[in-house]
């Protein structure tokens, strides 16, 4: 168990492979990331705080984390359905649908952003129908619940506003949930469901008390991956967000903006905050997963 203990592992090569792993991770992940911290170190503490807490930056944190969370939740829900359909049913064209799921992985995100904008802009295929509906919906909401500024919160337009950011982030996050759920789903043996049925469970009970607990850890992993991906996404969002300060500027855009202004330190300061928060959230999700495994999974 212990890392440097005397106990011999049954499997040979532990020291070598761990050493290789650490060296590799260091080279690929840690050294570039620590460069961000070192650049930031040029800032005084007060400047650092000022850079990462200016109102415009704080507004972007709220937006980035909020919309990423929303997109990951939606992906978790629809990704579950999609994975279920792909694993459980055979239908013509299934393999094509299955391959389509990977497209967001492969497509340059800028292309995705441009394509989404072209479709959802008010002169686009979908946008020309959907945008008036959306605007009317927001208008209606504002009449019903006037004490919330709905145009500010959910955006009055589709493309070039907050809904556009949500669309882009949902797009890039989709494969993560589907691809983490698929293997788990296909390993679930139908016998378990049959056993549940013979023991008198109805379909709803089988779903919520037998299948879902098995899927939950993988679902959380997929959710966490989709969320992390959405947080860092830049390429597709800038095309569709409208990029209005205090309203639809995501944090990665602010980092780029700072670079464009030759403010390397300010840019890395924001990056450091993002990294730290993202790491914290991923650790939190990880422990949630462990908990859910112990609490619900039982098997693993």
């Amino acid at each position: 168990m212990t890392l440097f203990g005397k106990r011999k592992n049954v499997l040979p090569g532990f020291g070598l492979s761990l050493g290789f792993t650490l060296a590799y991770l260091g080279l690929i992940v840690l050294i570039p990331l620590s460069a961000a911290f070192i650049k930031t170190a040029g800032l005084s503490w007060a400047d650092f705080i000022a850079a990462v807490t200016s109102p415009r930056v704080v507004a972007s944190y709220k937006l980035s984390f909020g919309v990423s969370l929303l997109a990951a939740l939606v992906n978790a829900f629809f990704g579950l359905i999609l994975a279920w359909v792909l694993v459980r049913y055979t239908f013509p064209g299934r393999r094509i649908v299955d391959a389509l799921v990977d497209l967001p992985f492969a497509l340059p995100t800028a292309v995705a952003g441009i394509a989404l904008t072209a479709i959802y802009a008010k002169n686009g295929w979908v946008g020309q129908w959907l945008e008036p509906l959306w605007a009317a919906g927001v208008q209606r909401l504002s009449e019903w619940i006037p004490w919330i500024n709905w145009t500010e919160w959910v955006g009055g337009k589709l493309a070039f506003d907050r809904p556009g950011i949500f669309l882009a982030l949902t797009f890039v996050g989709l494969p993560f949930v589907v691809r983490t759920l698929q293997p788990v789903l296909s390993e679930l043996e139908p016998e378990i469901e049959e056993a549940a049925a013979t023991l008198g469970a109805n379909r709803w009970q089988t779903m919520t008390r037998v299948i879902f607990p098995e899927l939950l850890p993988a679902l959380i992993t997929g959710f966490a991956l989709a969320f992390a991906r959405a947080l860092g996404e830049y390429g597709s969002v800038v095309f569709i967000a409208g990029n209005m300060p205090m309203h639809s500027e995501i944090t990665p855009l602010l980092i780029i903006t700072k670079l464009e202004q030759y403010d390397y330190r300010g840019a890395t300061a924001i990056a450091v905050v993002m990294l730290a928060v993202a790491l914290l959230m991923l650790v939190a999700v990880g422990s949630l997963q462990t908990w859910s495994r112990r609490r619900l999974g039982g098997v693993r």
């Binding site: 337009k157 070039f160 800038v238 409208g242 990029n243 209005m244 300060p245 855009l253 780029i256 903006t257």
Partner: peptide
């Protein structure tokens, strides 16, 4: 209504 980061955009 939209603040692109460059002239081309």
């Amino acid at each position: 209504p939209v603040l692109d980061s460059g002239g081309r955009g």
